[in-house]
Structures are given as C-alpha cells and as structure tokens.
Design a protein around this nucleic acid. Structure first.
Length: 266
DNA sequence: CTGGATTCCTGCTTGC
DNA sequence: TGCAAGCAGGAATCCA
C-alpha cells in the first residue's frame, strides 16, 4: 500500500517522464476514479509534478491541477500489461504520444481536478520530512489527546504520509506501545518517535519503498524496503531486538504489529 | 471528543 | 478440487 516513501518514489520517476507534457485527451472508463471536469484539463501543460501527503500532484499553474491518490492498489503505467488492462480506469493521452494510465485493482484511489490547488495543499497535515515536523510540533499536537498514539500517527490532518506500515515501524523504533494514550507520552518518547519517523521514511525512500503485494513504480519495479521491516507483517516471528514473539492486534480496524517487550504499555 | 463499525472494492488465503 | 467466507486496508462518514 503506497505511503509517503512509495508515493515519493513514483513522483520522482513520473517527474522526468511527464514534465512539460500537455494533456491531449482524457478517457475515463470508471467514473468514480475521476472527479471533476475532464475537458477542463485538456490542453493544459504539466508544469510540475510533486508529492504532498500521499497525493501525487500534477500542477498546471494558475492554481489548477490534479490531485491523485493511490490509496491501496493504485498505480501509474505507460504500458498496460494484459493483467492491468482490466483495471485501467483513466487514460491521459499526452502531447509526446505517450499515454499515462491510472490502474487500480480495488478502485479506492483516483484523480481529482481542482481549481484551488493552493488551498487544498495548505489544508493538509504537516510533512514529516520537513523541519516543521519536530518534537515541539508533535508534543503540541498530542498534548491533551486521549487518542491512541497510533491513531495520531495515522491522522493525515496532523502529520501526513504515514500509513499502517510506517506507523508500526516508527512505534517500534521509539519503543512505544501503539495503544499508548497520546497525552501520556514522555518528552523522550516524543523525541524518539519524531526521529524514528524521519529515519524510517527516509530509509524507505532510499530503498524505493516497501513492496508487499501491489505497489510498483511507473517502470513496474518494486521497492526493497520490505526487507528491512522490524515488526510489520512479522507477527509470530521473533523480535530482532529481544527475540520475543511479535504480536499482532486489531487497533482502529487496522492490523497492528508490535513487540510487547520492546514496546511496553505505559 | 472518542473509538468502533461501515462503506468503497477485488484478489488472495483459509477452512471445510 | 471447489467453493464460500474471511481478510487486507486509506479515508470518509455515521453512530454510540
């Protein structure tokens, strides 16, 4: 499932592939995957491609653009494989003759045309790899919160880009139990968590992301970061630090992995 | 304010 | 082998 490092990896590839291209035509074969007026973007030039949160942004300038979210199984490809054909929902024909296809098995993700790009981007949560995301920021955000720390990490309106995998990994790094009430975290734990989030996300970007099943870059290659996961998907296996069996519980509807020795409940 | 259930959706895994 | 149920989950939404 694409989280910040996976989206970042895709964006870096896409940027060199479609920068300066003009949209010649739009073909939507699954209506829910495309929000907004498709004719509005025909003739527009892609001036910039970047990531914000877990969104890929095609920037046309003048506050206009496309926000696209891959959710669980979305991906962009130039060449449709036989398998992909069935799940290709949007086709953007570009001025160079290439066609960029949005493919999504589970149909959760899609594209959205917006004429108020700036506002939309501003409304999103703090970017975890910037200076703004620091221990002061996080402690202020959780000061009075009775929510679990895992729910906070997954809340895109607070800090964005962290999904289920990196939330579990970051909590393991910091030695914090996912069910800990956010306001009960010590200053030391907050600091460790911020450090862990930055560290783990940055390393995953260097590894081109985590590929567990569906995630592939535009060039259809997977990442390598799945080889470095410490707790996510490791349930039943010994913890790399202490040897205790990694636990898996359900928290807020999500599978949650942790080591009960390294991450004691407060 | 909080967590939990539900919804969207398909494909893989599990159990009989 | 076959088939149905269960499970996976990002985010919005509704409910208690």
């Amino acid at each position: 499932m694409p989280e910040l490092p996976e989206v970042e990896t895709v964006v870096r590839e896409l940027h060199s592939d479609i920068l300066g291209e003009e949209i010649r035509s739009v073909n939507v074969s699954y209506a829910a995957a495309f929000r907004g007026e498709s004719t509005f973007i025909v003739g527009k030039e892609i001036k910039r491609v970047f990531r914000r949160c877990k969104y890929i942004v095609f920037d046309f300038g003048n506050n206009c653009g496309i926000l696209t979210h891959l959710r669980m199984t979305g991906k962009y490809v130039f060449n449709l494989s036989e398998k992909d054909e069935k799940h290709a929902h949007v086709a953007l024909r570009l001025s160079s003759g290439k066609t960029l296809h949005y493919v999504d098995i589970r149909k959760f993700g899609g594209l959205e045309v917006t004429a108020s790009l700036k506002t939309r981007l501003e409304e999103m949560g703090c970017e975890p790899l910037t200076e703004t995301f620091n221990p002061q920021f996080l402690s202020a955000a959780i000061k009075n919160s009775k929510r679990t720390i895992k729910a906070i990490l997954l809340d895109q309106a607070i800090v964005c880009g962290i999904g289920n995998i990196y939330a579990d990994e970051s909590l393991f790094f910091a030695g914090v139990h996912p069910q800990t009430e956010a306001r009960k975290l010590t200053a030391k734990q907050v600091q460790a968590l911020v450090l862990g989030i930055k560290d783990i996300l940055a390393r995953s970007i260097n590894n081109m992301g985590t590929t567990l099943s569906d995630y592939r870059t535009t060039k259809n290659v997977g990442g390598e970061n799945q080889n470095y996961l410490r707790v996510y998907g490791q349930d039943g296996l010994p913890c790399a630090t202490c040897g205790e069996k990694v636990q898996k519980i359900k928290l807020g509807g999500r599978g949650t992995h942790f080591c009960r020795v390294c991450q004691p409940i407060a």
